[in-house]
Nucleic acid binder design. Structure first.
Lengths: 203, 203
DNA sequence: TCCGTTTTTGAATGATTGCTCAAATTCAAC
DNA sequence: GTTGAATTTGAGCAATCATTCAAAAACGGA
């Protein structure tokens, strides 16, 4: 067995996430990818197949990180709804960090970028977003059973509402706007979601 | 004075709005623009300068339409907050129409697409979004004075919240999702905003 | 040290990008 | 008709796009 792989696959994918997150799928050229990952075309194509393949793997890394972040917030919170609010605050800290490649979500950026002549990518991001919706719906169904939600609240509708809140928060945060305004917005979103929770939101 | 302009500028801009709205700025190639507007490169560049110039004019047409739509909703409503809710419902009807080029907002699509090496475009969309924020803030300041808002609600924060709601609504609607779910989401957003209004939301 | 396999390199591919401009066309004025 | 200015045309520009592949380099095993 000769020659060990010089380039760490994980390190390369981290760089890819950063570049795609900052510039989007179409906005990141292979030349820029070569620079960011410090790899030559031959190695890139041998390792990831093509630009699509690299993007898919980078997207998987990105969504995995986001899931972990939400999971951690839920673990350290006494109730599900408080876990959601804790996650929103944690997310706000993350995206307003000075070294964040972008504040908007990479999945949403791709959703808004991709057209009907890229059906594979389109289906991929739709699948990811549907998975998040399903996960949230399960969470809120448990929250409902535990009396955390007002009577009559549908868990799946609340799931889509919360997903739209995250999309809106992160898209607005992509504006040229100061960090305090983003944090205020997060608190206002939590307040607004209080219309669906049994007990008034704490903050 | 010879030769009258064959191509109707307004008609061309309408086609440009449709194409850019569907495919985004970078996703619409000049070849596709030539087809959609039925114009040859020479006419295009003579009329609009370059791709940037065409996009700027198309964006102005788009934002003008959106402003009109909100203005109409506010006119036909007895209070400001009801006008906002009427607008949200009207917007939902518009974007779920089968011939809509996209459900997501063209300005937000551009905001998430544009990078730091396109500072003019970046500034342009930020300016437009700031204008909407300012307009909403004035509206909500009036609403506050007329007792439509709960005590302590800041008009500018509410303006950014509502803008983020619209961004979230339209971004989620861009998912492969049925019309009824979008309409339900709109109602849930209105319910959520009820946390800031003096009288409970009607629907 | 040499071998054999794998990885890396980077020049080159054809297609597409936004854009230019000389030539052809069109129409009002006469 | 003829003229003359404005508009339209479309071939063609250099640059960039994603991608390929033969050659060079790198390294474990002998």
């Amino acid at each position: 067995m000769p020659r060990i792989a010089k380039y760490d696959r994980e390190k390369a994918l981290e760089d890819a996430v950063r570049l795609f997150w900052e510039r989007g799928y179409g906005g990141a050229s292979m030349k820029q990818i070569e620079q960011a990952l410090d790899m030559r075309p031959g190695s890139l194509y041998a390792t990831f197949g093509n630009k699509d393949g690299l993007f898919r793997e980078a997207l998987a890394v990105y969504t995995g990180r986001m899931s972990n972040s939400m999971g951690r917030a839920l673990e350290e919170s006494p109730t599900i709804m408080e876990g959601i609010f804790t996650y929103l605050r944690s997310l706000t800290e993350q995206i307003t960090a000075p070294d964040s490649p972008a504040r908007a979500c990479l999945v949403v950026k791709t959703l808004l970028e991709v057209t009907s002549d890229q059906p594979e990518l389109r289906d991929l991001v739709n699948r990811r977003l549907r998975e998040v919706e399903d996960y949230l719906a399960e969470l809120f169904e448990r929250a409902r059973e535990q009396g955390e939600l007002k009577p009559g609240v549908e868990s799946r509708r609340l799931a889509r509402l919360v997903q739209s809140q995250i999309m809106g928060l992160r898209s607005l945060a992509q504006r040229d706007i100061d960090t305090d305004s983003v944090k205020n917005l997060t608190e206002d979103i939590i307040t607004a979601l209080g219309a669906f929770t049994q007990h008034p939101t704490t903050h």
